[in-house]
Nucleic acid binder design. Structure first.
Lengths: 138, 138
DNA sequence: TACTTGCTTGGAGTGCGCTCCAACCTTTTA
DNA sequence: TAAAAGGTTGGAGCGCACTCCAAGCAAGTA
């Protein structure tokens, strides 16, 4: 996300080192979850203060922002970890990263279609309750 | 589903009593899951043969069809059980059932919107990989 | 009769994504 | 200096939705 900047917070509020609880407040994740993300390899290397406390950067926040989007798609965490691994490996993984994103894109489109069709069933059913209002049907 | 008939199988293949493995084959659920559905109260009363084996009816299949739709919406099983309970309670719960379905409908619409917006981010990212193909960005 | 297949049950186990605990350390406030 | 607030770790626990196991019963075939 170094090219496409996150725009969820005003530039005035930005600084370059955030504590874990600040990041928790900004992202809506818990501190537990942030530590867990780091443990499972879903975060790039996170800086530490001289006493060993985590100090997150803008870059980390952007990454978490993107991870949040991937999470919203329903992508399994294991796949996100795989993607994070590809990012760590460097430029030669661009093709594979793109492929992963494109597969995710297809999944999202399919899921939208699936939801649309269930919506149709739901509407039929709701109509049914609206007009018939009786009987023992489900 | 006594009014709106399921149309997923040809009428010729219909009979009025199905074993658990037949239902598993028809629905894609496992026999384990079907028994579990019954245990947790997600099924209406299921008939038994003289030896105690389950004999599912067309009505059961229609119900499972509908439950499958609810599952696709992402509705928690506990909520489906609640809906099933309302059906068992009788006609006076029509209003509540309808409300539950309408809430689900709103959830589905919201989820579709959410997916659409993540799709936009995904497309930006894919474009980025397509046009820049370099650097150390995520 | 012996074997295979398919069903029954209560209860235990699994995989996922967190979520929390205990014990301890550092920093800030009174 | 004392207390409170917030950070660290490895590992245990939780809720969900299944998924499977063991032991046993019933029906069909060689």
């Amino acid at each position: 996300m170094s090219v496409i900047e996150s725009t969820t917070r005003p530039p005035a509020a930005r600084k370059d080192r955030y504590t874990i609880s600040e990041v928790a407040a900004l992202t809506g994740l818990t501190a537990h979850t942030l530590r867990w993300y780091e443990r499972i390899g879903l975060m790039p290397h996170v800086d530490r203060s001289h006493t060993g406390q985590r100090r997150f950067t803008e870059r980390d926040l952007s990454w978490l922002d993107f991870v949040g989007k991937l999470r919203l798609t329903g992508m399994p965490v294991a796949d996100m970890v795989r993607y994070a691994g590809l990012v760590r490996e460097g430029e030669h993984t661009h093709g594979e990263r793109r492929a992963l994103l494109e597969a995710t894109r297809r999944d999202v489109l399919a899921r939208i279609e699936e939801l649309r069709s269930t919506l149709a069933v739901l509407d039929l059913k709701i109509d049914h309750y609206g007009t018939i209002c009786g009987g023992t049907s489900s």
